[in-house]
Design a protein around this nucleic acid. Structure first.
Lengths: 175, 175
DNA sequence: GCCGCTATATATAAGGC
DNA sequence: TGCCTTATATATAGCGG
């Protein structure tokens, strides 16, 4: 009997897998669930340990979206856009002026968008949860058009950085 | 002598740490570097294993931005915005119409932005690397205003989802 | 889908170059 | 930062509820 138990145990435990698409759908869902949790946990740890901000969007196998974020992301991005970071002050200033011009020209349309958001908020207010400053947990009406623009411009800005030779990127993609 | 070596070895190896802000700056930088790489690797593995898309922005202790993304993020988000996903067709349609209205009204200003991007590209062309479709690796001129809008609207959209009660969020933040 | 279990693969802290 | 090493903490595959 001890023998039977031991033999069963020998077949359990973590096994090595290749990093390639999991074909069996049920396994894929389980793996996704476990690893997404692990990824979010790692992100949280990095945020806490190093006092940094992270924003992340993950699409699921079922095309749902999962999101992760740490507080103050907006502020960091805003500072970045407005050139208060250490590098490329000239370029940042330029971006800043583009941003402001963009801001003027879009003001009216953004008001329309703002109105639409308010409408959505009205119909969703009852389903919301309270929050303490995590932007990913904010309700829609707390995200004004300025913030939207900041984020949009930050995407533009960080992609510009990526396009330069000093960018960091995941080399392990070929592993 | 063997003794000395053994004693030195006893003091090496991984040690348990609490998940709280690393105060010593030099350590923080090393930890950030290692863990950011680990996080990107995990993200890559999740993308490959489960055939999903991930977009991520990480601010560094020095306020630099690191980004990670998998191919097709734009497409997934676009599909999502245009209501081709399984849930909330009605709402997605509504978003879609907002998006299109927004698109019309902003067209001209976006052209200006596009021009500015082109200028930037001209000055940066020599510093770029080749790419094969990873949006985080694209050069600026490959990201047109439509894509910018898609991303911007996707931010809006996924935040709307997050504001609803069914959203998923990192519970481990309290760990 | 989540929880628990085990055995093992991986990530990584510390320290040095 | 990047790249070693070692020893150990953690993440997680496969299986059963």
């Amino acid at each position: 009997m001890m023998n039977t138990v031991d033999e069963r145990k020998k077949n359990t435990g973590r096994k090595k897998i290749d990093i390639k698409k999991v074909e069996k759908n049920s396994n894929k869902l389980v793996t996704f669930s476990k690893r997404r949790q692990g990824l979010f946990k790692k992100a949280t740890e990095l945020c806490v340990l190093c006092d940094v901000n992270i924003a992340m969007i993950v699409s699921s196998p079922a095309d749902k979206l999962f999101a992760f974020g740490q507080p103050d992301t907006d502020i960091v991005l805003k500072n970045y856009i407005h050139g208060t970071t250490e590098f490329e002050d000239q370029e940042s200033e330029r971006i800043s002026s583009i941003y402001e011009e963009y801001n003027r020209e879009h003001e009216e349309a953004l008001k329309t968008l703002e109105l639409e958001k308010k409408k959505l908020v009205e119909t969703e207010k009852s389903a919301r949860v309270s929050n303490r400053g995590e932007w990913w947990n904010d309700s829609i009406d707390d995200m004004n058009s300025e913030q939207l623009q900041q984020f949009m411009m930050s995407i533009y800005e960080f992609r510009k950085k990526l396009a330069e030779k000093e960018y960091e990127h995941p080399k392990m993609i070929s592993m």
